[in-house]
Design a protein around this nucleic acid. Structure first.
Length: 433
RNA sequence: GUGGUCAUAGCUCAGUUGGCAGAGCAUCGGAUUGUGGUUCCGAGUGUCGUGGGUUCGAGCCCCACUCUCCACCCCA
């Protein structure tokens, strides 16, 4: 008895329609990346555990897929694991290949990543990221370019988005300001939930995480910040003016906003934006679709010392990652796919007999040389069956070949939309298509 | 990792207090031997997620596992 086929939890098959749509997303993103001079690389699906561990925080380590060698037991520390994102393997790549790279290095990378998370909507165990990073410069022009890329990609895809911007140095400054510099991770993950769970619950969580009432009280004016980006920035600048790192963050953010002032993309300074990944040190951003509720569809930030752990200190980088699978879900939900995406067959040859089939194959060859997408029905089946096939695949034209057509060196061209048909020569056919 | 939820034909789903396994769509054949999408007629389809238990009898009740979806956690 055949076993019932299935695939592992949190993974998916992609059929022809899904692949056409996914390729549309990938090629849109790829072509924008190329406009800014980014070049593609790939890295292996698996990395050494020593490369992966400790880079994503405690939670991240738990979500790593481990690869066991044969005979290895699950409780032993495995040598290899599947990559969790593309940024850490990229940092490893940089350090390993530093002699071959001209800095600042601009690379993009479109590959799947794996997380042993519990799946739910918009959340998979295998999904694609489209990462674009500049490494080897601390110029905030790189931030601007990434913002421009975000704007252009979503303009081309037709998705309305808002970019949320913050800076880890501001968050660090806030932590120092309220007298709890060592609690920065606790503070950021708690305030990140502000719009989700509300102010009271955030304060409660901060308290549970060990912040003093005094510290929580000092945080309130920051949580309550309202107004335009400039107003928020002015307020936070004033609060943190005596704080060195906070003021640096404010200054960086001011510069980024100023550089980006001509962009049409809505940019919102969001001091509650934290982002979990521990390696960010400066600008952080996250992009949300305005017309769909699926969480963030793009995110990233600046990391000053990611390569340091691999032995190459003082190399600053900044990058973002487009979540292709979530973009797919947004495009599907909003029905934003262009009609011409499929590279569908333009014409099907339907033959009545074996001689007609050979005749059709000759015609098909010539049409393909004229760059027309052609299918020949591979057997002289009943006309009804051949027509049904064309219909099911939404092929717009059928060329019917019978004895009469062969004698006159023509085919009967049927327009499947209007139903009209005319007898045409090959020149006429090529012109029509 | 915690809590909940779901699983029946290729797909979407009905299925009575526990008593022969159902519908629509899709597929296939025919009405129509040179014409699809519309119409009419006919046909096939199931380890009822998997394994155990209760019962004379289980799609239905009980237990375990797997998968789906959802909320946490976290994240693209």
């Amino acid at each position: 008895m055949a076993q019932k086929p299935n695939i592992p939890k949190g993974t998916r098959d992609f059929g022809p329609l899904e692949m056409a749509r996914r390729n549309y997303i990938f090629s849109t993103i790829r072509s924008v990346f190329a406009l800014y001079g980014f070049q593609q690389i790939e890295t292996p699906s698996m990395e050494l555990m020593s490369t992966l561990m400790g880079k994503y925080g405690e939670e991240g380590d738990k979500l790593l897929f481990r690869i066991l060698n044969s005979g290895e037991k699950a409780n032993e520390a495995p040598e290899k694991g599947l990559r969790y994102d593309l940024t850490v393997p990229f940092a490893r790549y940089i350090v390993q290949h530093r002699e071959e790279i001209a800095f600042p290095f601009r690379r993009y990378q479109i590959q799947p990543v794996w997380r042993a998370d519990r799946p739910q909507k918009g959340r998979y165990r295998e999904f694609y990221q489209c990462d674009v990073d500049v490494i080897g410069t601390d110029s905030l022009v790189s931030e601007l370019e990434l913002i421009q890329i975000v704007e252009e990609v979503y303009k081309r895809l037709g998705i309305r988005v808002c970019l949320h911007l913050n800076n880890r140095k501001i968050l660090a400054g806030i932590a120092e300001f309220i007298g709890a510099p060592d609690k920065i991770i606790d503070i950021t993950t708690a305030i990140d939930k502000l719009d989700k769970i509300g102010l009271d619950n955030v304060n409660k969580e901060l308290s549970e995480r060990g912040l003093s009432n005094d510290a929580i009280a000092k945080l309130q004016p920051i949580l309550a910040l309202q107004g335009s980006n400039d107003e928020k920035l002015a307020t936070i600048a004033d609060l943190l003016k005596a704080n060195e790192i906070g003021s640096k963050g404010v200054e960086e953010t001011r510069t980024v906003l100023d550089l980006a002032k001509d962009q049409t993309l809505p940019i919102e300074l969001d001091l509650t934006l934290a982002r979990g990944l521990n390696y960010y040190t400066g600008t952080i951003f996250e992009v949300k679709a305005l017309d769909a509720q699926i969480g963030s569809i793009t995110g990233g930030g600046r990391y000053d010392n990611l390569t340091g752990i691999f032995g190459l200190p003082n190399v600053s980088g900044v990058g973002i990652s487009f979540g292709a699978d979530r973009i797919y879900d947004v495009l599907t939900e909003l029905n934003l796919y262009p009609a011409s995406m499929l590279d569908a067959t333009q014409i099907l040859f339907a033959a009545f007999g074996d001689d007609e089939l050979r005749y059709a194959l000759k015609w098909a060859k010539q049409l393909r040389e004229a760059n027309i997408r052609v299918e020949v029905y591979p057997e002289p089946a009943k006309m009804k069956k051949q027509m049904s096939y064309a219909d099911a695949k939404a092929i717009p034209f059928v060329a019917i070949v019978g004895g009469n057509e062969m004698q006159s060196n023509t085919v009967m061209l049927k327009n499947m939309t209007t139903g009209e048909q005319t007898q045409v020569t090959i020149e006429q056919l090529i012109n029509k298509l």
